[in-house]
Design a binder for these strands. Structure first.
Lengths: 340, 340
DNA sequence: TTATTTAATGAAAGCGCTGTCAAATTCGAT
DNA sequence: ATCGAATTTGACAGCGCTTTCATTAAATAA
């Protein structure tokens, strides 16, 4: 059996109350006694039992992080950021993923984490009625990553993708002299894709450029389908001197590879850009012009928001917007005055 | 305040003992009463308090997973496998990473998870004395991923990398008619690199091929350094008709890109192969010949071992070996009778 | 000196649950 | 009817901790 507070008390010749006090609010106990207790704690290698403590305090110091998936560079980076900040703030992180075809029950049990998390950060790839309903009944503090649930009290951290996507399209138009931009998105129902597509349309429209129906295509964010699409369309795109704006780096990489496969030079004959700025973006040749999404900051900010909410339940809900940022590398073929 | 077992008892007109019984061993209570209790539970939306429960049962149903890093495709996949299986088995997963320069304290606190995990799976990239010592004092069940601590009681799951690496080199020699194979590894202290290097040397030796000192180089598993190395050496390698055996896919990708950059065709003029079979391997052109490491199985098996240990503390320790497997794709330029 | 604060400590009441033990009830079998 | 054995239930003692309240000792004021 592990050593308990009673053992410490006995060894230090004090009552358990005193031990508890040095554990929690050390200042209210006499310096000598405190020292004695601390020595006993160290000698015995005592660690308070989390359960007993949680039972009294109603607090576990555990935060939940629920993601649509645990796959790939993007989520991996979000986890990293969240985990790091959580530890800094004295919390542990519990991670779950919910299948996209979830009926809400998986989400619920993930969010509740068997009722032991103090709060939870949730990222949902598409907000449907069921998700809303499920989340509406969650009683612990939660923050929504990259999304918003009107009418439900929660903090959120979102990425300003429109601005980043807009900047990208503008860049393509201004610096790359694009007349035609092809948009390759993820699923049409995906929030991120919707945002990026909207910004794309707006910016094109503002520049008096038309968007042909065939110039918007929806895939699923994966490399292979993008590569296949590229094999079919890359010739035509290059012929019309189009730019390709892929909604993530992985698809951009697929398209670049398809182009190279067909003997089309990137960026000389075809300009391709991505989104997210995952490590993939540095693993393409030419290196990818993309929009940097602060993934690990997202995770970290979510944790921070959660913690500050735990400190002050009453604080007004905040919506933290993180900027995305255009990263110009080589694949867009931008005219560069400094000649990189 | 949340609804407690007492509320349920009151509502169902029974004692809390009875409620507890239907919660735990439902069969020993009368069918009618049970139904009444179950209804009350549902109506009240009752969820047992984990802390109170944990306090009695000394069990949290939480497993720890400690990794050297949370970055990239590899770990991401391990986490995925572990998480999935954990949920299947009714456990939650708590993930931590420990910095490589850790003095042991981070490892310890990660492993202990504030004393609330029932068991923990630990992956350490290099086993030094401090790590050993730290782990030796861990009293909860733990399984070591991809490593072994002699003299300390623990289960482990390891990848048979030697076999995979050996098969790869053999393949290079037999099917690709390699006379010279260059090995590009991670840090020399890294266990995986050491294993793979050893297998490489052995196989080369067995085939009466010499390994020049310059033909073993240590990088750090990252793309960019491999790309830089490639830029310098690729010409020479191609000239001597060498094969490049990179210790992970990412470095292989870097070398391939460097080769292409220099106008050297892969695999026609230079053969390059990788290791791990992460998604990166499918994102190179030509697609990467590599050794498949069952990353998610690793995570899943670790969780399984842990759970079975929790069920039976006395069971003899087991060492589970997972096979790695040669995956022949295009980048090795193997003669393929079926002409893919 | 005596009355009154103040500081430091201990005793004990739970927190919500499980599990032991005894009491109450039912059921056959005498 | 009568008794022993199941069967079903409730009372209650903890699990290890925090916290309230009371107690004691020391310090200050009168």
């Amino acid at each position: 059996m592990a050593v308990s507070i009673e053992d410490v008390a006995k060894k230090a010749n004090v009552s358990i109350s005193t031990v508890s006090r040095v554990l929690n609010r050390r200042n209210i106990v006499n310096a000598d006694t405190r020292k004695r207790v601390e020595t006993a704690i160290r000698d015995l290698g005592y660690r308070p039992n989390v359960f007993a403590r949680g039972l009294m305090l109603r607090k576990s110091n555990i935060l939940g992080l629920v993601l649509p998936d645990l796959h790939g560079e993007f989520y991996s980076e979000v986890i990293r950021g969240a985990n790091f900040r959580a530890h800094e703030l004295g919390y542990q992180l519990m991670i779950s993923s919910v299948p996209t075809d979830d009926d809400g029950s998986a989400l619920l049990s993930a969010v509740l984490g068997h009722g032991l998390v103090d709060g939870v950060a949730v990222m949902v790839s598409q907000v449907d009625a069921r998700t809303r309903e499920t989340l509406a009944n969650v009683k612990i503090p939660f923050v929504v990553l990259d999304g918003n649930l009107d009418g439900i009290k929660h903090d959120s951290v979102v990425i300003d993708q429109r601005q980043g996507a807009g900047a990208m399209v503008q860049h393509l138009i201004d610096r790359c002299e694009a007349k035609r931009v092809v948009f390759v998105g993820g699923l049409a129902t995906n929030i991120d894709t919707m945002e990026r597509l909207a910004a794309y349309r707006e910016t094109m429209h503002a520049a008096n450029l038309t968007v042909a129906a065939a110039d918007v295509v929806h895939l699923d964010y994966r490399y292979e389908p993008a590569y296949q699409l590229g094999l079919e369309r890359v010739g035509e795109w290059a012929a019309s001197d189009a730019c390709v704006f892929a909604a993530n780096d992985e698809m951009a990489a697929g398209i670049i590879d398809a182009a190279i496969e067909q003997g089309i030079a990137v960026p000389q004959q075809l300009r391709v850009v991505g989104f997210d700025d995952t490590r993939i973006a540095q693993m393409t040749r030419p290196r990818l012009t993309t929009v940097h999404v602060p993934m690990s900051s997202m995770g970290a900010s979510a944790v921070e928001l959660l913690c500050s909410r735990l400190d002050d339940e009453k604080r007004p809900t905040t919506k933290l917007t993180l900027q995305s940022e255009l990263v110009v590398r080589v694949s867009c073929g931008a005219v560069d005055r400094f000649g990189t």
